[in-house]
Design a binder for these strands. Sequence first.
DNA 1: CATGAATGAGCTTTCATTCAT
DNA 2: TATGAATGAAAGCTCATTCAT
Lengths: 191, 191, 191, 191
Amino acid sequence: MLYDALIEASKRVLASEGVAAVTTAKVAELAGVSIGSLYQYFPSREALIAAVIDHKLEASVAELTPMLVGLREAGLDEAIRGLVEIAVRFYRDETPLYREMVAAMAAVDRDAHVRRVLEGFDQAIVAVLEPHRGQLCEGFERCAWIMRETLIGCVREAAARQPETLADGSLATRLELMCRALLGAPAGEPG
Amino acid sequence: MLYDALIEASKRVLASEGVAAVTTAKVAELAGVSIGSLYQYFPSREALIAAVIDHKLEASVAELTPMLVGLREAGLDEAIRGLVEIAVRFYRDETPLYREMVAAMAAVDRDAHVRRVLEGFDQAIVAVLEPHRGQLCEGFERCAWIMRETLIGCVREAAARQPETLADGSLATRLELMCRALLGAPAGEPG
Amino acid sequence: MLYDALIEASKRVLASEGVAAVTTAKVAELAGVSIGSLYQYFPSREALIAAVIDHKLEASVAELTPMLVGLREAGLDEAIRGLVEIAVRFYRDETPLYREMVAAMAAVDRDAHVRRVLEGFDQAIVAVLEPHRGQLCEGFERCAWIMRETLIGCVREAAARQPETLADGSLATRLELMCRALLGAPAGEPG
Amino acid sequence: MLYDALIEASKRVLASEGVAAVTTAKVAELAGVSIGSLYQYFPSREALIAAVIDHKLEASVAELTPMLVGLREAGLDEAIRGLVEIAVRFYRDETPLYREMVAAMAAVDRDAHVRRVLEGFDQAIVAVLEPHRGQLCEGFERCAWIMRETLIGCVREAAARQPETLADGSLATRLELMCRALLGAPAGEPG
DNA sequence: CATGAATGAGCTTTCATTCAT
DNA sequence: TATGAATGAAAGCTCATTCAT
């Protein structure tokens, strides 16, 4: 489908050359499509970029949701370790695309949508921790966004500038410690 | 000096309208300078934007360094609390400019310089904690970047989407807990 | 019939938005027809616009001819008054469409056809005056186009910029005076 | 001056090929100027076309005003003959440009300006006739636009389709008769 | 015949950059 | 040095037209 080809091409250009390089002509050519066709699927360059962002966010949600749901059955130790692991596995490889997506959002204003997706993640985290509320500090639900921001931010930074800490698991260990402290969870048995 | 006027004008446009709006004509006019003159100080638009980024980073360093140096005398509790406080005070208000600077960096590639600045911050943090190494876990020096990323990331996100947690101090409290856990510091007395 | 629907849709767009807005896509949609079908009835956009012009001219001829024929029985006074009246009744309301048609003709070149239609009108006017040739100046037949141009031009201008002169009949009175003078007709009894 | 070259080039394209053919690229090339420069003098294609119209109107005013002023000293016969003559001399050669200007105005909306210019002409006509008000019908001032419309319209039509009536003076004779009748002037001595 | 997705030439406009003054 | 008019490559977008279904 041309629509998908255009999204795919845009994503490729975005990840490798940045928003400014996402020109309608380049995307169309890379997708093997005429510019005219591009404009039959997207009313403007802005709309195209917005669609790429939305698309990527949706894909993230679709990929992460089942993983998070799977953790609802887990014990507290496993749950925290699982959340950290998901962050690592997921954000490790996406760094360049995400970096450019931040720039793209500044140019296209998808803020409302992004916020909705992030809140969805926060709720999913809360759902994972809920069963263990007895072991957690009061108001732990309001910490979900801090956890999410810390996990994603650190994994991203690690991918870009401290890759060995991802490979040897040392980052994961540190993140678990931080999350436990944030949630008021008792010290876990060494993973 | 014309150079400074141009940097200042660029920063203003960047912060309020984004990288894409930083055109040579607009910057020159805002600086009260002809475009011809702009090109006498900067070889290209890219160079101008890069200079703006560098300038802002240098200013951050200049502003934060004395604060960090001041913390070298402090006790561990005070030190940790102080680091969190610095992050809050400094990044709370800069969110829009930083957001646009991320987009700008994606377009101009200042990575090496950014890395150098960040490493400088990490070393400053280590210097603050050094006196208390007996109370900290082994290898705490290698945690500085995690701390830095967590503090900056969370404060920025809070400024953008959870401002009340900055006002009521609840974010600061949580961040302190996380930092202590990260560093292996003993539980502090309630601040 | 699709043909008529397309002509009708074109005329509507032409009258309300001007030639430039007459796009094949818009016309086809308004006619409830696919663009593909449009091209089965008209070889090009030009041909479509030309057809619209021709259509409108034909309709004018069809509507005015019986009125003019009706005047052949009339006395001279009545004939002149009738010619003025026809111009007023007919061109009063068509101003916007005619205005756009002038622009359209400049873009499509229907000159030969227009000329033929206008000559038809001139002959019809002559036929109305013929019975009274004894009361008219020599060569009055060669004045028909002057009469036609004056009547149409003034009524159109009045409709656009002097509407009250149409309502109170003052324009009609003046035009009658002018026509009489043009034709060398004796001063008429006040209508 | 580039400004004038651009106006001139536009006028040439407009007169010979119509509004639709007035593209920024074509005008710039014909003027021997880059498109970039065109946009330093005119903010848009619309503005360029509007300027061409305004320019032409101003030129007409500048050319006709002294002729009209010159007629204020004249006797009634001479005045009427003079008004007709001015119309003939002036509009005889401009037909194609005026034809396209009508189309252009429909596309650019200069109506207010055009109206102002036309009213100026009407006032100038009144000023020419004023000294003879004793010989004219009551309310002759309100006939100026009818006179103007008739003269311009008929000369234009003659230039396009009845050129011999311009050459042999027969049109002028007829128009004088019509004007006299319109104004209620006594029959003039044969010119 | 009818459809409408696909095409691409061509239009308007912007903006980084140059260079004669 | 400072200026800003001039440049033109390149971007976003439209729309007449075609053609496989």
